[in-house]
């Protein structure tokens, strides 16, 4: 739909952020990043490159050591949706009650947001499982509930921290397809942390390749293929070319770091 990356309104600016942990470990150096409305950004890198730290900073779970994170128009209570690596559901609550959580914390009764919850569940194809308990669901279905919970407030930005890493390949593929469908239907803005080159090329329109020690962005690769993307995108020559370029960048960086040691 939107292939032109230049004309979107910025919703978030990460300005030259450093994060240093105690004992002097520099997790991130000079991280600068503008997130525009409708972006699907992948943070791609080896473990220890600070991609999860970047996500936690944006989520407000950590404060930057130096630098600033600015939301256009300030950050509201429901500007963020988050999907973790694990489904992170409350086992004592039904699927619908889990999706209700963000509203509940704002004092909104279940009844008053029932339609929104049903809408979110139908977006992830789980409308029939509203009254099931998480333990009754498969790993992939739990992840869908988690996504529904992130979507339900219609946040300005959704953060996903390697959400499908623990799933089997077939489920993962399916959820990737579904995520793109969701993206096309809701126009959601997403930051997606992954260590899979193929996942990042398949899903995102901007890939930020990161390197470790210190964690930093070394290159931005743009993927101009418009959404919705289907199976033909995965088999196209352009996909293969970008995947090669991304992979070379990633391994060049990893190799350089290893050589430096």
């Amino acid at each position: 739909m939107i292939a032109d990356l230049g004309n979107r309104a910025p919703i978030l600016n990460v300005r030259s952020v450093d994060k240093t942990f105690n004992k002097g470990v520099v997790a991130l150096r000079r991280l600068s990043l503008t997130v525009n409305e409708g972006d699907f950004i992948s943070l791609l890198g080896p473990s220890g490159c600070g991609k999860s730290t970047a996500l936690r900073l944006i989520a407000g779970l950590m404060e930057p050591s130096i630098g600033k994170i600015d939301w256009t128009g300030g950050q509201g209570a429901d500007d963020l949706g988050v999907v973790f690596q694990e489904p992170t559901l409350m086992p004592w609550a039904t699927v619908a009650k889990n999706v209700w959580t963000p509203f509940r914390l704002r004092g909104q009764s279940f009844r008053s947001v029932k339609d929104r919850i049903e809408e979110a569940l139908s977006l992830v194809g789980l409308e029939k499982f509203a009254n099931a308990y998480p333990r009754e669901l498969s790993g992939g279905m739990k992840m869908r509930v988690s996504i529904a919970r992130a979507l339900v407030t219609r946040p300005r930005l959704i953060l996903m921290d390697e959400p499908f890493a623990a799933l089997d390949e077939i489920t993962r593929q399916k959820l990737n397809d579904d995520l793109l469908n969701l993206k096309a239907r809701t126009g959601a803005t997403v930051i997606f942390v992954t260590h899979s080159v193929f996942e990042s090329v398949f899903l995102s329109d901007r890939i930020l390749v990161m390197a470790a020690r210190p964690g930093r962005i070394i290159k931005e690769i743009q993927v101009p293929e418009p959404y919705p993307r289907g199976i033909e995108w995965r088999t196209s020559a352009e996909y293969a070319r970008i995947a090669r370029e991304t992979s070379d960048t990633l391994h060049g960086a990893t190799g350089a770091t290893e050589a430096a040691e």
């Binding site: 988050v82 992170t88 959580t101």
Partner: peptide, 19 residues
């Protein structure tokens, strides 16, 4: 992670305890 989720959605101390 659920605890982080509570932080992200700005749960107060009482809500965190209760929910």
């Amino acid at each position: 992670n659920l605890s982080d989720l509570m932080t992200i959605y700005r749960a107060n101390r009482w809500q965190r305890l209760r929910y």
